[in-house]
Amino acid sequence: MTMTMNDPATDPSTIRLVQVMRLINLVALVGLLGVLAGSLFLQFGVGEQPCPLCLVQRSGMIGLAVGPIMNLMWGLRPAHYAISILAALMGSAGSVRQILLHIQPDDPGYGPPVLGLHLYTWALITFVVGIAGISVLLLFPRQFAANDQGILKTPYGLPWWILGVAMGVVIWVVLDSLVIAASVPFECGLGPCPDDPPDIDGAGVIGGGLYLLGLAVVAMVIGFAVVARQRRKVSSDS
């Protein structure tokens, strides 16, 4: 009796699993993008400056996004998921700290509540859901057998426009993170941040929305340009 074993790197079921995992990573990245864009809207649209613990939680969100970005750019690896889990643990430490500071029943909390919960509570929920979600994804170790090299080098037949959207989302997260980074010196200088920073004049709902829309357009243009350049490179090599 002869047994035939498929090469895991080319096995169609493994490739399909990689595609599903990439899609889940992309959806997770879009969710984190919503959180980061929402925080930017609050800062520049509404004019509410982030407190030091809020910045720690933003750092946790950025770190949580690094895992999916590396999975999409470099290929699926356990170490990339590990970075996200560590960043989520760090961010949740900041969230728990802020929740405990406002734990007493008569305390109004910091900042306006959104859908009945304060932003630091939502942040903790996001971090916990992130850790739980990654744990579920790690239950499928066959995703690492395909020797995935990322969406640009090993697209596995993905349509070019999906690659463009994925790269656009990656660039959008990076741009949001850079804007957050650029805003910190104006609030804190080159030192620790004030505990209760004063509000600034926001650009308003329309101004803040247009600002975010502008970032999205720039990110998508760069994302599609990167994919188009890669396609040209692949076609000229072949």
């Binding site: 750019m73 850079l178 941040c193």
Partner: peptide, 20 residues
Amino acid sequence: PVMFLIFVLWAVTYVGIFLH
């Protein structure tokens, strides 16, 4: 205690991702 440095470090991390 430079809060800004947190985000500089993340920016360098992103550079590392894009340059592999």
